[in-house]
Amino acid sequence: MPQPTRRAMLALGAAAAVGALAGCAQAPGPGSGSTATATTGASASGRPQPANAPPPAPVDVPPAPPPAPDLVKAPAPHGTIDALPGEGSLLAWTVDDGSSAEVIGAYAAFAAASGTRLTMFVTGTYPAWGENAATLAPLVASGQVQLGNHTWSHADLTTLSDAGIVDELQRTHDFIGDTFGVDARPFFRPPYGFHDDRVDAIAADLGYTVPTLWYGSLSDSGEIPAEMIVDFARQWFLPQHIVIGHLNFPPVTTVFDQLRAIITERGLTTVTLNDVFSSEYHP
């Protein structure tokens, strides 16, 4: 899948809901198989106490998601973005498509373990999104992972009829809302970066007022060696950049630690688009 690069150059170029361990301490009753004896002892009330009760089994509780960066948000623009506004040390790591359930799951596990904040642009036709819904749900609910609209079937929107553009955006909008309970507006990523005034106007009528492009790519929409992905990260993981990756092929999942090290070494803070921009959908 060809990736446009920024401006002239880029045009050529890039729940698990964890319950607390709740002990249900209950005195044994008739038929429980427990017998009170002088050796097991009794409580002050005379109720028998279990003998040699095993300790509760350990439960792995993942860390709470990190809080969102304390930023003064800028109003979301009505128009195209390919970078974050102003000066700073923020990085918007965004990922698209989702043809691989394995890669989506690995990104979710990486985000949960590392605290990395991600914006995922959903192509709704891929079943991998539904397959990972339970894993992604707590990350989406906390805001650590933001979902954006990447159309239903990854069609070039500029080639479609007006009704076709509406269908592509609306179907994925509805899927995200029904599956994850969030509103993906106002950010949409036109496939291949292809959009024009007509596409933008129709998308805006649906509430998708921000065509979201990028300033650098991991170039992994197709399968490339993991070492190349690291090289592209070194090139593009820079302050205020929106960088695009893809949820399609496994090599990127083998170098998450190296990608995170680049972010740490450069003093960057990962953010979602909703961390940086305010809108009527995400104040």
Rank of each mutant, 00 (worst) to 15 (best):
G13S: 09
A15E: 00
A15R: 13
A15Q: 07
A17Y: 14
A17F: 15
A17G: 14
V18P: 11
V18Q: 07
V18T: 15
A20D: 01
A20C: 08
A20P: 03
A20T: 10
L21M: 12
L21V: 13
A22K: 00
A22Q: 10
G23L: 15
G23Q: 11
G23V: 14
C24D: 10
C24Q: 10
A25M: 07
A27I: 12
A27D: 02
P28N: 03
P28M: 00
G29F: 08
G29D: 10
P30W: 09
G31H: 06
S32N: 06
S32M: 09
S32R: 08
S32E: 04
G33F: 11
S34C: 14
S34Q: 13
S34P: 00
T35I: 13
T35D: 03
A36M: 09
A36P: 11
A38N: 04
T39C: 14
T40V: 05
T40I: 05
T40G: 10
T40S: 15
T40C: 12
G41C: 05
G41S: 02
G41D: 05
G41W: 05
G41P: 07
S43V: 00
S43K: 00
S43M: 12
G46S: 04
G46I: 06
G46E: 06
G46R: 05
P48H: 02
Q49D: 03
P50R: 10
P50H: 01
P50N: 06
A51P: 00
N52Q: 10
N52S: 13
P55H: 01
P56Q: 11
P56H: 06
P56D: 05
P56N: 09
A57T: 10
A57H: 04
P58A: 08
P58N: 03
P58R: 05
D60P: 00
D60M: 10
V61G: 07
V61Q: 09
P62I: 00
P62M: 01
P62Q: 03
P63S: 05
P63H: 02
P63G: 04
P63L: 01
